[in-house]
Design a binder for these strands. Sequence first.
DNA 1: TTCAATGTTTAGAC
DNA 2: GGTCTAAACATTGA
Length: 343
Amino acid sequence: MRNNNSLLNFIISTISLFLTSAIMPELPEVQTIVNELNRKLKNRTIKSVEVNAPKMVAVGPSIVSNIRTASKRSVNKFISLLKGKKFLSVKRRAKLLIFDLSEPSPRPSPRGRGRNTLMLVHLKMTGQFIFEDKKLRAKTGGQYRMFNKLSAPFVKLPGKHTHVIFKFVDGSHLYFNDIRKFGYMKLVRDNEINQVKELQEYGPEPLDKKFTMRAFFTAVKKRHHGKIKQVLMDPKVVAGIGNIYSDEILFHAGARPTRAVSSLTDKELAAVYKWIKPVLIKGIKAKGSSVGDFVRTDGSWGQMGKFHFVYGRKGQKCKRCGSTIEAVKLGGRTGSFCPHCQK
DNA sequence: TTCAATGTTTAGAC
DNA sequence: GGTCTAAACATTGA
């Protein structure tokens, strides 16, 4: 009975999702950006690159913290490596975007590897891509909204939070904006990809076939004293789940974020596993329906609350039972839950 | 001026 | 040594 109710609620909320968009990029948001950029950037050739925040770009597979010591030389290298290259495709691993860029004049490589340059981009909290061509500029007048600035007026791009600009030979632009400057861009050769530390440490992709219940149980049960929310957010256990989606998954699974893994029955843990995919897919579909506007000026911003059952809803009524949503601090993060629906 | 926001890393405790 | 927690970090705006 309870299962039927939760399924019904889930379907209803999915239907009411058309104009929804979340702000913090987690897996579904990053996937949306990947889908969007794949369409828009394919085969575009870079004419020039402008870098206004040297600390946000780097060359080589070294770890992220090394990026912050960027020098003028590495910025110049970053720019010269990109000039003349063509975007082939964009992929995603966890919340990391991976751009595949061709050599300026592709020559066949004996092994077909070690030729292309990869650009790894992490958006962190407030990173944003806006692709602009003549058509879009005419439509928007060059006015865009920034992440996390829902109440602010539209801004012109490039603006003070535009840190990297890609100019293409056909006159179109790709802007990389980031209010907090927590994000980064990093160039590696494709044969260096195995040396990139953050890629080595990611656990399974939750939407991948390899992410089985057995794999999930094995990874989670190693952390028997860990709190389930923190374990879900650990990229080594499963990639791409952040604060928003862990809250939502645990709501549907009926487990409080503070529950220790060891206190969860196999049935409860199976429920957590069961809800991971549908909640993430729902997120991707929500973006999908507003995808045409997402990288442009996204009129749907500010409506994200509509689709969340618990995230960011402390003090409001539970959409399922009417109880007041509570919040708890877990390692500096806020976890929201319904005290009635989640045991 | 302090606080909160995030994913990720690190230091220190257990 | 592995697991777990809290603090730190990048920065801005309320």
